[in-house]
Each structure stands twice: as C-alpha cells, then as structure tokens.
Amino acid sequence: MLQYLAKRLLLTIPTLLAVSLLVFLMLHLVPGDPAIIFFGDQPVTPERLEQVRRQMGLHRPLLVQYFDFLGGALRGDLGRSIHNSTPVLEEVRSRIGSSAQLALAAFVVAGGLGLGLGLVSALRRSTWVDAAAMLVALGGVSMPIFWLAAMLIFVFSIKLGWFPVTGFGGWNRLVLPAFALGFVSSATLARLVRSSVLEVLWQPYVTTARSKGLRETLVVRRHVLKNAFIAVVTVMGLQLGTLLSGAVITETVFARPGVGKLMVDAILAKDFPLVQGAVLFVALVYIVVNLVVDLSYAYLDPRIRFE
C-alpha cells in the first residue's frame, strides 16, 4: 500500500513536467506578443515596445526562458505575472479558497443530485418516476451554465430575494453558483449511477440477499449503494479538474475570483508565468484527487487490492 502510494506520487513528477513543457510550448505557438497586448490600444513607439519586451524577459531564447521558469519552480518560486508583477504563487493562492469552496459545493450538489436521481430512476425502472428523473438529468446536460446561472439569479435573487447575487464568503453566497455548476455534472452522474445500479440489481448476490428475506431498503443500502458510490467517485475524480478550471463561466457570472477565471484571463493576455502557475496547480489537484479516488476504491470494493 505504502509502496503503491510512493510509486504513484513519483509518477506525478514526469506528468507535471510534461504538462509544464506542453503549456509552455503551446503558449508560444499562439500568435500575439505579450508586450503588444500590454500596450493594447495605447499609443506606443517601437523603442518603448522593445524595452517592455526586454523587461518581460521575452528577448531571451525560448529554452532559456523555460529552464529559468523550471529552476524557479523547483525552488518554489513561480515568478511574477508579466503584466502586473504580482507573484504568481500569491495570485493563485488568493483564489484557491474561493475555487475550492465552489468546487466542493458543486461536487456536493452534483453528487447528491446525481446519486438521488440515478438511484430513484434505477429502482423505479420503466415507470414515470424513471422518465421524470432522467428528463431532469437531461435538462441539466442541455443547459449552458451561463443560461442556467442567469435564470437562477433572476428567480432566486431578484424575484424571491433568497440569495445574494454575487460575492464570496458565507454559504448563502455559495448556493446559486454551486447549483449552476453542479447541476450540469449531476446529469452525467445520474445516468451513470442508474446504469451501474441496474447492473448489480440482478446480480446473484443481490438476489440472494433478497431471497434471504432482507427488506428491499436494506438490500439497497447494503449492496447497491456501494456500487453507486464507485460510479460517483470515479466520475467526480475525472470532473473535479473541470469543476476547478472549467468554472470560469460560473465565476464570471457570479463575480467570484477563482482559478478558472484567472487561467483564462492569463491565457488571453499571454501572461506566461501566470498560465503556468494556474495550470500546474490545477494539474496537481487533479492528480492528487484521482489518487484519493483510486485509494477509495479499496474501501468501497474489497476485491480491489493495491500491489
């Protein structure tokens, strides 16, 4: 077990390195000179442009720039944003709280809704309940987040006045964004839970349990739920990265400072160090979460062992 953990952790190093190299190369392939972006629509002379380029360190060869970054990163220094010279680490760190809150809350919404809808529709298969639950789930997949978010604001903030529209801190500011972000994931999850529950519902061991005279609720709780949980955990492991970095629209609509928005803004401004920092952070979270997911299989399914 410990050995497995060590091996997995060691494997994250090449992955992170590859990610950072990929990001670096990709960003340099993208047309657009950061110095020009810096000046935007302001008048500027070529000499000033060159000077700023120099200050941003863009005059050095590509490889030198990359290894410079790498060297810094190994020492725990991700450099400073080339636009506002804020240390990247600080920039990312100041948004982790907000992002993590949102991702976790969305996770709870998605997990709860997905599990609920999936279970109900599987246990009441081929009834109107099943149809209704799946319809709700499909509604989720077919609604763009910005639209759902706008509707939520209109109904719950403006008309009913239940929740504040924007901001950060306090659970009541979290409800609407978490729901907007989580609802979409819940749809995929509900379908997965439904099919994995259906799969076990007629497995011999469940039938046996039933024939032993166990009440249906107990059968479900003991044997079916665990299987459903495996589905939830797997999907959420895969989607947590999306909940973090893909939350840009939710963050924009609800005016929350977050890592997703930071990353997109940095990409659009070609702020190399900032993009690197944000991507590395998201990648690290993704890797760690999936490690946790894999470990939790052992708990959920005793047949799985780590060697």
Binding site: I153, F154, S157, I158, P164, V165, T166, G167, V253, A255
Partner: peptide
C-alpha cells in the same frame, strides 16, 4: 468597489441592494 463583469449580474446586484 466590487468587480462584477457580467452586465446582467451587475444590474441584478443593484436591484437586490448588494
């Protein structure tokens, strides 16, 4: 000064008193 980029949201904050 609160930064609220989405215009509909910004208007909504005025309407709710935020």
């Amino acid at each position: 000064y609160r930064i609220v980029p989405e215009e509909a949201t910004r208007l909504a904050t005025l309407e709710t008193g935020e």
